[in-house]
Design a protein around this nucleic acid. Structure first.
Length: 480
RNA sequence: CGGGACGUAGCUCAGCCUGGUAGAGCGCUGCCUUUGGGAGGCAGAAGCCGUCGGUUCGAAUCCGACCGUCCCGACCA
């Protein structure tokens, strides 16, 4: 644990991010370039995210299964767009068991190929549909410019793979996942507001008909793709020869979806809520929601510790995740700083002054506000406080997102400048042509993050880039 | 893969120019003292100076090759 101050977000955001991740004990680089070690505190946050996602995945009717890490090269190669899209990032095992393999094995960058080659045997009749499955897995996409949690060569995620009788049903599935699983978790648990939208063709998942995305704004003005849900049409079914007999007796191809959310979300929590003192964790994902720091001298030690234990027990009974930091070797000031760095939402200080008042001192991490609360009221007050912090973090992030969204830039120059400075989101009309997308990217490093789903279909305008009639009003930003 | 920088203690780095006993801060261990916003004292452990080769009586230091890492560009959940 370092004792010096963090770099500030405004002076050097990437340095701030790296230091927070390291010092808070979330993760560190490993012996393998680009692959990280997720440390217990970081993994606990991931476990909370996992639990919330998994509950919602199951609540929407899905079951978990598990497919192997290795994909025969020939299977991966069958889906042309998929191979093409992932080719540079795929790691391949060519040797095992002490000799060269007859057929190289790809380490999965995603599992559509292996799963759909298997679905070919699982789907014979319309009675076998839909298949509503998900897996929790690690995947490997070799990264040239890795960053902890945001871009690592190996990461953890869940990938859902479903098969449906009709297009309408598959599209509905894609949107259910986007809204009821991903947006619900990210907004209500991670307290990060998201834009819900569709990807432009250039940003679409290889092999997808449509990619839906959730885009979140980080505190440095860049966008983070927080989760994606793909409508895959019948392409994978045709490629892997998945056919079934329909209700009318004719042979049909099912419609596919796939969807994923990864450990990148941990980085999103850091970058969406963190401040110059460190992490600010939403209570619903905080490994420790309340940390009690006892402050004592030799003569009142027993009293203070006993009161701390009593408060902790009461909070635990109310299902609050609480820890008494009774480490004797560190002074209170050190612990305050450390738990602020680690983002614990609530800190309770108990010392002689509090004992005399029959109270404890409660500090909230999000605002820094500190006040005394009488002992009998502690449990109720803390529960209320945790709810309030959860809501406040979301409100603050939403306010920030709105404040940093530029609607209808006056012209191309204003848009490009805004994007180049990574000032936030820009909503601007677009003609739908790839070349305008490319030009904006070359001029500003900004890209189309999504075409928002709630866009009014009747809106008119002219492309911010070329002046042709606009077909959409995408949101643009620099992206992670 | 192009351009740039750097490899010395767990971490951050000094020493190299001008060759001659391996250094600092933080961290770590022990003891003492402290505890309401990052305490202090004393003692201690810790190094293949990235690797290989060359020059030299002698190389962390000079030369060469290799390996690795980081930063900037093209790709990306």
């Amino acid at each position: 644990m370092s004792t010096t101050a963090l770099p500030t977000q405004s002076s050097d955001f990437p340095a701030w991010y790296g230091e927070v991740v390291r010092r808070a004990g979330l993760a560190e680089n490993s012996a393998v370039r680009g692959a990280m070690v997720i440390k217990p505190y970081g993994y606990a946050i991931w476990e909370a995210i996992q639990r919330e996602l998994d509950d919602r995945i199951k609540a929407t009717g899905h079951e978990n299964f598990y497919f192997p890490l290795f994909v025969p090269g020939s299977v991966l190669a069958r889906e042309g767009e998929l191979v093409e899209g992932f080719a540079p990032e795929v790691a391949v095992v060519t040797q095992a068991g002490g000799k060269k393999l007859e057929e190289p094995l790809a380490v999965r960058p995603t599992s559509e190929a292996l799963i759909w080659s298997t679905y070919a045997r699982w789907v014979e009749s319309y009675r076998d549909l839909p298949l509503l499955y998900n897996q929790w897995a690690n995947v490997v996409r070799w990264e040239l410019r890795p960053r902890l949690f945001l871009r690592t060569s190996e990461f953890l995620w869940q990938e859902g793979h479903t098969a449906h009788e009709t297009e309408a049903e598959a599209v509905a599935e894609t949107l259910t996942i986007l809204h009821d699983v991903y947006a619900d978790t990210i907004e209500n648990v991670l307290a990060i507001p998201v834009l819900r939208g569709r990807k432009s063709e250039s940003e679409r998942f290889p092999g997808a008909v449509d990619t839906y995305t959730l885009e979140a704004l980080m505190r440095d003005g860049k966008a983070l793709q927080a989760a994606t849900s793909h409508y895959l049409g019948q392409g994978f079914a045709r490629t892997f020869d998945v056919r079934y007999t329909g209700r009318d007796g004719s042979e049909r191809y099912p419609y596919a979806t796939s969807w994923g959310a990864s450990t990148r979300l941990v980085g999103g929590v850091v970058m969406a809520h963190g401040d110059d003192r460190g992490l600010r964790l939403p209570p619903r994902v905080a490994p420790q929601q309340v940390v009690i720091v006892p402050i004592f001298r030799d003569d009142d030690r027993a009293d203070v510790l006993q009161t701390a234990a009593g408060v902790a027990a009461e909070l635990r009974a109310a299902r609050v995740r609480v820890r008494v930091d009774d480490r004797g070797d560190y002074r209170p000031g050190f612990k305050f700083n450390e738990w602020e760095l680690k983002g614990a939402p609530v800190r309770i200080e108990i010392g002689s002054r509090d004992l005399a008042a029959g109270a404890v001192t409660v500090a909230r991490r999000d605002s820094g506000e500190k006040r005394q609360i009488a002992l009998p009221r502690v449990s109720a007050a803390v529960e209320e406080l945790l709810d309030d912090i959860q809501r406040s973090l979301y409100r603050e992030a939403l306010h920030e997102q709105k404040r940093r969204t530029l609607h209808a830039p006056r012209g191309y120059e204003e848009m490009v400048e805004y994007l180049r400075d990574a000032a936030g989101f820009v909503e601007a009309p677009w003609c739908g042509r790839r070349e305008c997308e490319i030009r904006v990217k070359e001029d500003s490093s900004g890209t189309i993050r999504c075409l928002p789903l709630d866009e009014e279909p009747t809106r008119r305008g002219t492309c911010v880039c070329c002046g042709r009639a606009a077909v959409a009003f995408p949101v643009w930003a620099q992206a992670y």
